[in-house]
């Protein structure tokens, strides 16, 4: 087919122009989040002392960290969905949750403790954390990648990894309501490892799913 013929067909096709990537991503995440939430509630459930735990600032801080991760990763993923976008500068945004964690670790260290730092880091159930967050992430990661397919990323591996981070952030937000370990040392170790696993899965899927 000659190129001017193709252009004629393209010009005739006016449909489907306005739905930006952010809207599609938001819609698909809104479908996946209840799935992961139901998965958590039907298997692990919430921690039994939830109402008491809410008075503990370190319990609340887990949500601040995971939500900060989710929001910064969503922002970076949407930015990188534009073909001409570069990661420069934007990557720093992903360090925001780590900065919050660093401050929290410092604050916790200044309080008197009955247990050693190592005990707090190892926590009660690190392996559950390491398994549950990736599993809860999977529906969210699938939805995030589907939503981001609407974009045109030049770096699909990176966007896949960032999609993994945003999924782990949202899954971590859910899991935090079950997790009885509130120490920032625990979060910095195990939540971060779980996030790295999901980011790795996202990076593997990215080039397969996000090429346009």
């Amino acid at each position: 087919m000659e190129t001017d013929r193709l252009i004629q067909a393209l010009a005739a096709d006016g449909a489907d122009r306005y739905r930006p990537v952010g809207q599609v991503l938001a819609a698909s995440l809104l479908v996946a989040l209840p799935v992961s939430a139901a998965l958590l509630l039907s298997t692990l459930g919430l921690r039994p002392d939830l109402s008491q735990a809410m008075h503990n600032p370190f319990f609340d801080l887990k949500f601040v960290v995971t939500l900060a991760l989710s929001l910064s990763a969503i922002t970076v993923a949407l930015h990188l969905s534009r073909p001409e976008a570069t990661a420069k500068g934007w990557r720093l945004l992903l360090l925001a949750p780590l900065a919050i964690l660093g401050l929290a670790i410092g604050a916790e260290a200044m309080l008197p403790h009955r247990t050693s730092a190592m005990t707090r880091l190892v926590g009660h159930n690190s392996m559950l954390c390491l398994g549950a967050i990736p599993v809860l992430s999977l529906p969210i990661l699938g939805a995030a990648l589907l939503g981001l397919r609407r974009g045109a990323p030049s770096r699909p591996v990176l966007v896949g990894a960032v999609a993994g981070m945003l999924s782990a952030g949202l899954a971590g937000t859910l899991y935090a309501a079950h997790c009885v370990d509130d120490s920032p040392l625990f979060v910095a170790t195990w939540y971060t490892l779980a996030t790295a696993i999901v980011a790795g899965i996202g990076a593997l899927l990215g080039p397969r799913v996000l090429r346009y």
Partner: peptide, 10 residues
């Protein structure tokens, strides 16, 4: 051209 067309919302 096809990619430009299908991704012009980005």
């Amino acid at each position: 051209l096809l990619a430009v067309h299908l991704k012009r919302h980005t």
